[in-house]
Amino acid sequence: MKKKWYDYLWLAELTYLCLGLFNILFAWLGMIFFVTPLVIAIFGGGKTYCNRFCGRGQLLGILGDKLKLSRKAVPPKFLRSKWFRYGFLAFFMTMFGLMIISTYKVFTGLPLRQAVTLLWVFKLPWQWADVSSVAPWVAQFAFGFFGVMLTSTVLGLLTMVLFRPRSWCVFCPMGTMTQGICQLKHGKEFKENGRKSEENRGTAENSGE
């Protein structure tokens, strides 16, 4: 298949992570990876973001397939179950909410905490960042949001190595949210589509099972 421009968006993901390490304020750019998939799903584009534009999914694919870093084992079944996927989404959004609250607290005058929280518990000191040029709450959000992005990257890499390259996509909160939106909008159509093709199969192959 001929490569299209969007097949190189993994470079954008990589650049984002590097920029964030170099200057934490670039974390704000990550909002694009948050808003775009939702906008596409809400306005009828389905999961085009996941299927085409997601640099993170591509990057995991490249690391797992091309660089052969993945064991390529089927992930455990619970990972794809509704309760786990929506449970993880709920947990993720709660942590996101708490991050917004701490940003608000800094906005109202609490001192800035220069740390990036990894996997919701490990606080990485981030003293080298120079954030004196912006309002403290802007910096606080950058620290918090970069923590979210790094955490999901670490989980993505871990599941990439342990299971199949894009195992993260099974429980990625953005993936779950966009699919959830599409299910609400087109779930019925999808079911009907499935029933129709079942009927076709019956007549075409006349298989009596």
Partner: peptide, 10 residues
């Protein structure tokens, strides 16, 4: 199929 799931062309 519209972001819901995959369909197979039999």
């Amino acid at each position: 199929f519209k972001g819901v799931g995959v369909v197979v062309d039999r």
